[in-house]
Design a protein around this nucleic acid. Structure first.
Lengths: 205, 205
DNA sequence: CGAGACATACCGACTGGTCGGTATGTCAAT
DNA sequence: ATTGACATACCGACCAGTCGGTATGTCTCG
């Protein structure tokens, strides 16, 4: 191997990430990407065969970091309690904490952005996005199922609906946070999901 | 006036609406719009000065229909009860009902789509989007404030946070519904917001 | 050790096609 | 006859992607 190109590749991905968040994939040009990364067209097409190849790489990196965060928070929650409901509530609390910290990346979910432009991508992109959601589902629903089996809730509910509730609040919270430019809104909504689950399980009577 | 062009104008808007939902504004070309509307370039630029003029008209129409739905549902809810909390809960129930009906348009919120491409639009587009959200806030928060003044909730909460909860669940629910292609997810999440408010106000003890 | 063969990283001018937008004309209804 | 509602032909800018070439590193073998 010759010179190490990973730094350049990362800078391309960073530049593209910001542009996709601000303009969408269809509204972003590769000239803008290379300008943001401070490189040239030759370098870009050395690292990515096509623009849509970049889109796929961007999604892969995003999903990978997302999964890492998920598993890290779950592992921490599992160490803090053995009860599945408490593990779930602690996990949501840790997620809220992570979103509240100012160091966290500016609000914006690549997956949500792609969902509103799915026709620009090949069909397997949709599947990759679904798989990304399903990973969270695979990890979290068993906790909720265990809690539901152990205790009756105040209202009839399924683990899938509660999972969808968390995901909806997250994605919707991102939109609100982006629009109003205050990240606290997102963290507040994740906190309210915790409230909701606690109330359902009668933790505040 | 010569021939009536409003039908053509509406067909352009309809075609553009579908394209924006599938590809985003930046990923949509006016050639695609005119192909979908079955007209020519001359007709398009007769009705809209520029592509971004179309974007603005699209947003205006969307917000207008959105506001009409809001006020219709609120008026119906106000006729069904005099208690502010009940009015709010009935309103959310009517909204759920409207979203559950199959006649309702396929899931997709133009406002959310714009939020993920704000840099493609002039700054006043963001303000128009914010105003759209604030109209719902202006109508719904007083109901919640009246309810909060009358009765203590099980957990501390503000009307703004509850309003954000409804909006987040709506926008996030749209994303989930779009991705999984089942509209029930969206209606389910609106229903869960109702659950949450009811639990907060101790309606299930 | 050193030279040269080779692979990867990167550059920037160039290309074919598509983009948003315009110029000009025709037709229908008043 | 005039005006608004379209259609057709066309333009320059910009788009994604290509290509010939250079710079810089590693590996091999004498």
């Amino acid at each position: 191997m010759a010179r190490d190109g990973t730094a350049t590749r990362d800078r391309i991905l960073d530049s593209a990430m910001q542009l996709v968040m601000d303009k969408g994939y269809g509204g972003m040009t590769v000239d803008q990407v290379i300008a943001g990364a401070g490189i040239t067209k030759g370098a870009f097409f050395h690292h990515f065969k096509t623009k849509s190849d970049l889109a796929q790489a961007l999604l892969e990196r995003y999903v990978r970091l997302d999964d890492e965060l998920l598993h890290e928070l779950v592992a921490r929650a599992e160490k803090l309690s053995h009860d599945p409901l408490q593990q779930y509530l602690i996990f949501v609390g840790l997620l809220e904490e992570a979103l509240r910290s100012p160091a966290e990346s500016p609000p914006g979910c690549l997956v949500a952005s792609y969902v509103y432009q799915l026709e620009l991508f090949p069909p397997d992109t949709r599947e990759a996005v679904i798989n990304s959601f399903n990973e969270w589902r695979r990890v979290l629903c068993p906790k909720l199922d265990a809690a539901l089996a152990k205790q009756k809730t105040k209202l009839p509910i399924t683990s899938e609906q509660l999972y969808d509730n968390l995901m909806s609040l997250f994605e919707g919270g991102v939109i609100m946070s982006r629009l109003y430019r205050q990240g606290a809104t997102l963290a507040d909504q994740v906190a309210q999901h915790k409230n909701y689950v606690e109330l359902l399980f009668g933790q505040h009577d």
